[in-house]
Design a protein around this nucleic acid. Structure first.
Lengths: 217, 217
DNA sequence: CCTGCTATGTAACATTTGTCACAAACCCGC
DNA sequence: GCGGGTTTGTGACAAATGTTACATAGCAGG
């Protein structure tokens, strides 16, 4: 939760996770950013909130999901070190409200870039403008894949898609997940997930344990 | 299909549909754009295609949808005069492939902006850079609504959402649609749509006719 | 090692959506 | 006003997903 303004630390974080930025951009950012820490499970954004700054993730992982009016969740994608929240970049520039929710899945650190700086960064630093566009483009594509998975695929294919994503994010075939968590992320029910996971185990696609799913495909 | 390079005509189209652009930007674009006409039902983009230019719609309407490997479609959103294809703007700058399909729903006209120009436009013209960001942001939000509708809603609510969209796009409560078209757009089957529309008619939400659905809500 | 909490398994059933088969209604051109 | 195509209506059934209710299993702390 603490807010620090140690320039040298910010500078170092920027250099290690945003090496593509030109040196003057890094100094500029280091001058104006603050670091913010989040605990696991802490909410970074909630719908309806106004952005005062753009977030650059430098440590940990952040889950981006959509919520409906009844509090149901739907997981969309996840950010890690080196990523930025696309919506916060553009909403920020236009003082719009957030349409999504974000939650830290582990203790995480983000750099907060004041929105007042955005215009100057966009027009003055080519690497920043590329970064913003690339961020938007790749989130957009991730979202398109999500649309695919719910528009065209059946539940068991969606679980497969979900597990593949989780594996990529955790860099491991051993996923520490409960069936309930998966169900919540997919806006389904636990029994359905258990049932289908069991079938996948019989087909040799996964190995199931308490709190763990080992991906075998 | 014809390609013309009549500067004055381009200039005029730009002025009437993209009035927010600064005059020098309009001249710049008029100098380098070409007009392209599309017939109704003609495909503007297909997945896997490389972009050579960004499209600004100046007349007609374009439907943006996703296709799966079996040729199933899923309608996402629609562009009209004054809109631009978000993906073509950014894919264009990075020479990436299109991930979507686009089809003219009526005879349409677009201005083609060569991708070689993008960098100069982005850095040199503030109104262009705002336009690109705003385009991306609003498509992103439309896509989020689409995700909502399939992640959280049942078929009848989705039909309602679909009809509301169509009404907004056609500026009329009388929609010229067959049940089959709706089914295709929603990746469902005609019988399901007919069944649910009938129920909606009984509840007084729509009036059904051959090739027409009158929205009453 | 017992207790209690959490996670998982599973059967039975409800609901929603999709599929098949075919009938009826509508519309256009002759 | 008569075919022939297209569009819509509908019943019966299949398949997928969601719900309810409860049993069992694993783990952690006392």
């Amino acid at each position: 939760m603490g807010i620090t303004t140690q320039h040298s630390q910010v500078q170092q974080l920027l250099e290690s996770h945003f090496g593509q930025f030109e040196p003057e951009l890094i100094s500029k950012l280091a001058e104006h950013c603050v670091i913010r820490d989040f605990e696991a499970d802490q909410q970074l954004m909630r719908p309806g909130q106004y952005f005062k700054s753009t977030m650059l993730i430098v440590e940990g992982g952040v889950k981006i999901y959509r919520e409906d009016q009844d509090g149901n969740e739907f997981f969309m994608y996840q950010l890690g070190a080196g990523d930025a929240c696309a919506l916060s970049m553009i909403c920020a520039t236009r003082k719009e409200q957030s349409q999504i929710s974000a939650k830290a899945i582990e203790p995480s650190k983000a750099l907060l870039v004041p929105i007042a700086l955005m215009d100057e960064l966009m027009t003055g630093y080519k690497t920043w403008y590329y970064f913003v566009l690339e961020t938007y483009r790749s989130r957009f594509e991730e979202l398109l894949e999500v649309v695919d998975s719910i528009a065209f695929k059946s539940m068991d294919e969606r679980i497969e898609f979900y597990l593949k994503n989780q594996r990529k994010l955790s860099h491991s075939d051993e996923l520490a997940l409960t069936h309930q968590q998966i169900a919540t992320d997919m806006n389904s029910s636990r029994e359905v997930i258990s049932r289908l996971l069991k079938k996948m185990e019989q087909r040799g696609m996964v190995r199931l344990g308490r709190n763990t799913i080992t991906v075998l495909f």
